[in-house]
């Protein structure tokens, strides 16, 4: 199934995978901090460095190359949307938003392809991140795949019954589809809360 790949990627051996996960996580956060704060030449240099790291890693392994490319492709629409928003906001003219967007994409792609979900939670626990945050992260991970699967099924149903060749109409239907998934997620959240309550949950983190 297509939705398995994200968690499978990190299980594969890689150069980055051999680095201590805590160090990897700290490097990821530090790099995000640097690209958020960097301006001008520093930002340009950081971009070149990250591109270099990515090229080095994909050159080192064919499997890794496919993984990184797939992660980049999956993240691209989100990245493009963020960059679009940044371009619309004041005082962020020039190439900076694009470079930051590109750096973020590369960083996230490298991160998700080298850090498994279990590994990430272990790192967060060892860094004494509050357990409620880790639990919530678990819920997000658990239901991400479910909603993606629901979206895919609904998209298939939509394709099966839509006969309009208009691209605009296609986008309108896609927007409706996403709205439906959000509504379903709201209903699902109520059902999950009931399931938790039935198993003794009373709002306290244990």
């Amino acid at each position: 199934m297509s939705h398995y790949w994200t968690s499978d990627l990190a299980d594969r051996p890689s150069f980055f995978g051999r680095i201590d996960p805590r160090l990897r996580f700290s490097l990821f956060l530090s790099a995000l901090g640097v690209i958020s704060a960097a301006r001008g030449r520093l930002l340009f240099g950081a971009t070149l460095f990250l591109i270099g790291v990515m090229l080095f890693s994909v050159a080192a392994s064919a499997k890794f190359r496919r993984s990184v490319l797939r992660a980049l492709l999956a993240l691209l629409p989100f990245g493009a949307f963020v960059v679009f928003l940044m371009l619309l906001s004041r005082g962020t003219g020039g190439p900076s938003p694009l470079l930051r967007g590109l750096c973020s994409l590369i960083l996230i792609a490298l991160f998700v392809t080298t850090m498994g979900f279990d590994e990430l939670r272990e790192v967060l626990r060892s860094l004494r991140v509050p357990s409620i945050f880790i639990t919530l992260l678990g819920f997000v991970y658990r239901y991400f795949f479910l909603f993606r699967e629901e979206l895919e099924k609904m998209d298939m149903a939509l394709k099966n019954r839509s006969f309009s060749s208009s691209r605009l109409e296609g986008w309108r239907l896609k927007a409706l589809l996403i709205g439906q998934v959000l509504l379903r997620s709201y209903r699902r959240s109520e059902e999950v809360y009931r399931a938790m309550t039935a198993r003794g949950y009373d709002g306290k983190e244990r």
Binding site: F117, R142, V192, A195
Partner: peptide
Amino acid sequence: RRKIGFVFQDPDTQLFMP
């Protein structure tokens, strides 16, 4: 509720942990 177990129709509702 400790003495009553409930199995929901949709297991994706019941199984909420990763």
